[in-house]
Design a protein around this nucleic acid. Structure first.
Lengths: 263, 263
DNA sequence: ACACATTAGTCCTCTATAGGACTTGACGCT
DNA sequence: AGCGTCAAGTCCTATAGAGGACTAATGTGT
């Protein structure tokens, strides 16, 4: 017999804390979380999972469908079930994305790292991330949209979990999307987010970097990134300077694709 | 035999264009859209739907679950399946909501109508709404958050569909949430949205109303509201002036509740 | 009055089974 | 080499049936 990957779930029709399909999806999620399968990996076939968990096919299928709804896995007819990778997330547009007017064309976006530090400072990021040792990696970057519109972005991550990241060279970090990198290299895909916005004067440091007048107002956009089980993994603050050009920030919504509307 | 509400779906296991569970959910959605059942109404029981559609229980259940995922209906164990009403949407927080720092407390929000007109002007709203006769209802309001922070909001609706609305007195419109009213009185719940943001100088008219300096920058937030089948029903533009106070605008995300993070 | 049991109505879970549909690669024929 | 067929592997759809669990209303006994 092959090495089983999942133990059978306890408690059949009754006497169990939760529904069987729920237990199964939980169990698979835990395994993915633990790195048992990495993004892009193929999961065992339905019938095999059914055999391993001692559930019937329909129950396993329901569990897998719920994982699809969570954005954790993808299923492809005739091919198999796969752990959602970074590439997949990009298409789902669950998160955000810079966009331009005139159709739904994405604009090229370039990143330039302006600093990487570790800090013990507390702030809204520590409140959100809640790292065990109170240490955070703080990376800031200049984001250039289509070479004509700049945005300043800073991101905090818990140092304990992403310590390797601090050791990566800036060259490695440059030009890549953080979401993709966290998903691919740290098994920490951003599956959900909490956001707030405000219109405030840009801090001197930021206005200097962006080349706008000191005290100029801008959008301060905070995005708390969540991974499996809504565990917080990133705290990001984006400063958006004024633009009379019709460049906008578009955010995708639950169902369906993002769709730009020109102002 | 009782008057059936849904014809049996054609094409059984094969030969049909779509899956049976899909056909069933489509059919129920159409009925709801057509006003066959109104928000708050109870749908027939599972087994009755199964009998009416000629499908098995499991298939009907799957169809209903997909409608739940769409936010169209709600199911309550032991009670029944109900068309999602305005009140339900409010809890789901699919849309947006003004929020304050210090916990997750919602701030009281007051609306004051500053104008109601019908217009044939074209603009981004007409592009989004695409009314058949090119006529739109244009309503603008001053929104006051907790009596200390004002926002200007204007909303466009297709005149053909919401003609009754123009005849409502301003008194009727005052103080109510548009989302709730559209859901309750027009069977047009906002189930999804498309959004864009930009930081731009506030138009003179708006800065005057909000009592800020002419030319002051603010967030220009555009929300295209979608109802059943992602049909566009509202085009809303919100002007948010600067605030050094920690009042933020929070937007809920796909899974889970909104959660404020103080700046 | 009040507490408790019963019952009808409803949704929820799960099973075992059957066949369909899609993808991929191997095989055999031209 | 190129093409078509076949088969294995996988997910997709659907069924009939059984029992469980929750809700609300009704009836019963103290």
């Amino acid at each position: 017999m092959p090495a089983t990957t999942l133990r059978p779930v306890e408690g059949g029709r009754n006497g169990s804390p939760k529904a069987k399909h729920r237990q199964i999806s939980e169990r698979i999620l835990s395994a993915i979380e633990a790195g048992r399968w990495l993004p892009g990996d193929q999961l065992p076939a339905e019938d095999q999972l059914a055999a391993e968990t001692g559930a019937s096919l329909g129950t396993v299928q329901r569990a897998l469908r719920s994982l699809v709804a969570m954005g954790v896995v993808e299923r492809h007819h005739g091919k198999g079930t796969f752990v959602s990778g970074a590439r997949a997330q990009e298409q789902q547009l669950l998160h955000f994305r810079f966009m331009a007017e005139g159709g739904t064309q994405l604009l090229p976006v370039y990143f330039r790292i302006t600093g990487v530090e570790t800090t013990r400072e507390s702030g809204p990021w520590s409140q959100f991330l809640d790292s065990s040792d109170g240490e955070y990696i703080h990376i800031h970057r200049l984001v250039s949209v289509n070479d004509e519109f700049d945005v300043f972005s800073e991101i905090y991550l818990p140092a304990d979990r992403f310590s390797e990241l601090a050791r990566l060279s800036e060259t490695t970090l440059n030009g890549v999307s953080f979401r993709d990198m966290l998903a691919e290299r740290f098994n920490a895909p951003t599956l959900n987010a909490r956001q707030t916005m405000a219109c405030q004067p840009l801090p001197p440091r930021v206005s200097r970097l962006l080349g706008v007048m000191p005290g100029q107002y801008g959008i301060v956009w905070v995005i708390g990134g969540l991974s499996y089980r809504d565990a917080p993994i990133t705290w990001q603050r984006i400063f958006v300077p004024p633009s009379d050009r019709v460049i906008e920030i578009v955010q995708a919504m639950p169902h369906g694709q993002a769709k730009a509307v020109s102002l």
